[in-house]
Amino acid sequence: MKTMLPILAAGALLAAGPAAASRAVPTDGLWLNPRGTVAVRTGDCQGRLCGWIVWADGQAMADARDSGIDRLIGVELLEDYVPRGAGHWSGSVYIPDIGHRFASTITQIGTDAMKVQGCLVGGFICKSQIWQRIARLPNG
């Protein structure tokens, strides 16, 4: 579960939906988790917001391999996020370390920051992270 928190934070990246014109600050773009180990590109997927891993550091890739995922790059981390009020979305986040999807919410906390929360057990065990928008992928 070493990568779990970075992955949960990825959920924060997917905060969007079909009503893109009504969003004050778009969530589509490139986002980096708080530890700087995973970057996700978010965008539209059939009228909902989704996010795919586009960069990961060596440790995140090793953790994924240990969990049975050979290629972390390209994995759909954030799936089917729909608007749930101003600056709030819900969907699901995939945790590669565990190999399962969990309920997730994204809360926009500024033009360049999102809070992603993932809940493991019916909303009783939740973790959250703040993801930052980035202009380009980290070197590495």
Rank of each mutant, 00 (worst) to 15 (best):
T42S: 15
Q117V: 06
P83V: 05
N139A: 15
V25R: 02
E76H: 09
G122D: 08
D63L: 09
R41F: 09
D70V: 15
G123I: 12
A64R: 03
G118I: 02
P83R: 01
D66R: 11
I53R: 02
G99P: 05
G17E: 06
I106G: 09
W31A: 04
L78M: 14
R41S: 09
I130S: 04
G140I: 10
R84K: 15
A113C: 06
R136E: 13
I53S: 04
L72E: 01
V25K: 06
I134D: 09
M114W: 04
G87P: 01
G58K: 11
R23E: 14
A24P: 03
G99E: 03
Q59R: 15
W55A: 06
A56E: 08
L8K: 00
M114C: 08
D97M: 07
W55P: 13
P138C: 12
S90W: 14
R71I: 07
A24W: 07
A20W: 03
Q129S: 15
K115S: 10
I7R: 02
R84Y: 00
L30G: 09
A135F: 00
S104G: 14
R71S: 12
A60G: 08
R71L: 11
F124Y: 08
T3A: 12
D63S: 12
A16I: 01
S22C: 06
P83K: 00
